[in-house]
Amino acid sequence: MTEPVVVRRGSVWSRLPVLRQLRQSVGLQRGMLIVGLVISVAFVLTAIFAPILAPYGYAQLQDAQGNFGAQDPPGGKHLLGTTVGGYDVLSRVIWGAQTALLAIIIAVVLSVFLGILLGVISGYLGGWLDRVLVVIADAVYAFPTLLLAIVSAIIISGGQSNLWGGILASGVSITVVFIPQYFRVIRAEAVRIKSEAYVESAKVVGTSVLRIMLRHVLRNATRSLPLIITLNASEAIFTLAALGFLGFGIEPNSAAEWGYDLNKSISDVTSGIWWTSIFPGLAIVLVVLGVTLVGESLNDLADPRLRTRRRATGAPVTTADVSVVPGGTLDAVTITDGLEPRS
């Protein structure tokens, strides 16, 4: 990080992944990015502060005044009503954020790590290993996510569903599904970078293979990751919820999980009881919406064809807000800079 190249780009703030795009964006894209960020941050905070925010525990069935009623409509002591099993809906929705966040973290960390590792190795080394990995990645990629998740859930928890069993099952299954995606992207980049002049010269100088892979290939291959990570995160939530919905999720006394609650609400819906399904469902929608909005805006901003440009300058740098000089000679440099979003 001490090369002079870095200094040219301005302060650390303007280079942080998301903040940089936030400055770059305008209009609807900026709106989407901001809404997405707000929802995502609210979700993370809810997950962290669940013990303080939730009025009751996720498995709590009674308080000092006795048992909670079953299927009580929203209002009074239970703001969002109670479920068939007599749980407080609001509390379970809030606690569910914690489970969801854990599932996301595990899924993203595992698949980013393994996917990038395999992608760089396969792309840079090539040969038969590369061929075999590509065939396997493609076969897995074509496999229905949910079926793979079910199969992984069976191995990991053997069908038993405690907190970690359930979260790991969804995390690992998402990892299995997402490794091919990271793998493809990183591998394609690695293949391209491999033939760049700077890799050649590094070889000539006698740099070790490991160092070339880490320093030259990996560093330059990671630019489209933010988008895949957001996709990965929403898939993790979907899978966790889908497993829960199919009865392969986490038991209610181990943790709160939105998919499980939705499964228990199928019969409620038929008899017109709406609060047990609407609220956990909305929680899933909101979180995925937040993460997707962030990913979608980042994607648009990274693709010059899709980016809404700020008139003539379109530059991501701080001066862009101040000066709009169409055709100004000074800005000519900034324009090309702005069109090349990957620094």
């Binding site: 929403s234 819906v269 038929t270 017109g272 399904s277 469902g281 899933i284 997707t292």
Partner: peptide, 25 residues
Amino acid sequence: RILAILWYATPVFFVGLLLKLVFSV
């Protein structure tokens, strides 16, 4: 676009439950 993102963000079983609630119940 917002509609498409909303569609994407809603799990299919929740869409199903909502449709059931509105149109059947």
